[in-house]
Amino acid sequence: MNKIRFSGAVNYIFLSVIVSFFIAPVIWLFVTPFSSSPSLSISLGTPTLSNFSSVFKDPAAVYSFGNSIIIAVGVTLLTVICASLAAYIFSRYHFKGSNFLIFILILFSNIVSGTAAMVPLYMLNISLGLINSYLGVIFTIAGGGIPTSIFILKSFFDSIPKSYEEAALVDGSSYSQMLLHIFLPLSKKGIIVIATLSFISAWGNFLIPFILLSSQSTYPASVTIYNFYTEMGLPNIGLISAYALLYTLPVVIGYLVVNKVFGFSFYGGIKG
């Protein structure tokens, strides 16, 4: 009996250590921005909002949020449009090699791309004249995310019975009316998930804008935060923590949305 109690206590201590290791930075993120003497340790001191006001006084900090929004929205639109059109075709029409094509796309976008592909992507953007432009960043980030989005959307579309579309056609609607009235509303949840995921990934992407953008006025928040130093070259922790909290909020909200939407199941007018 004692033995069991002892091992139970050991388990709890072990788990507590692991949990605090992971949760400490999160607590730091929510406490430090409000601290009058921000440091790397978690201490609130006198609560203050002065760190936030210094963020809003820094013009670079403010417009970089705008840049982040431009890039993230651009990536989201491009991904949603391309991925949903492609996923519809992959889901509804089986042509020779279609599965292989998806496999190859996923392989090259997820496994081969990223850091390894940075140099060729950089060269590509130079030769396309897209270096130091939002468009170059949007294309590059979206290009990396679209294959996975196609794959996720395809599985989602596969779960929507084809007979809804067929019923709409038989009822007299044209293909575009069918897509608009029937297919789009039915696939709304899947598309929202893809939109949220691509928004979050574009919002959080540091490497691609850092490499492809060269003028500070075009930097998104993820790159700007890298430049918050005092005149002596030390990191300005008050500014960084306040900025980090603001930068995190859209992502947190995004994840909450995904979580709510992902809790779906498919109910329908299909008797099974």
Binding site: S173, P185, L186, G269
Partner: peptide, 29 residues
């Protein structure tokens, strides 16, 4: 294409549009 054939069909699984009420389903054509 099906939409110009002036046909009506009842599907085995009924294929009622799940996002529409019964009224909207019946009135869709």
């Amino acid at each position: 294409p099906p939409n110009v054939r002036k046909i009506a069909m009842v599907f085995q699984n009924y294929a009622l549009y799940p996002h529409m009420t019964v009224f909207k389903n019946i009135s869709y054509p």
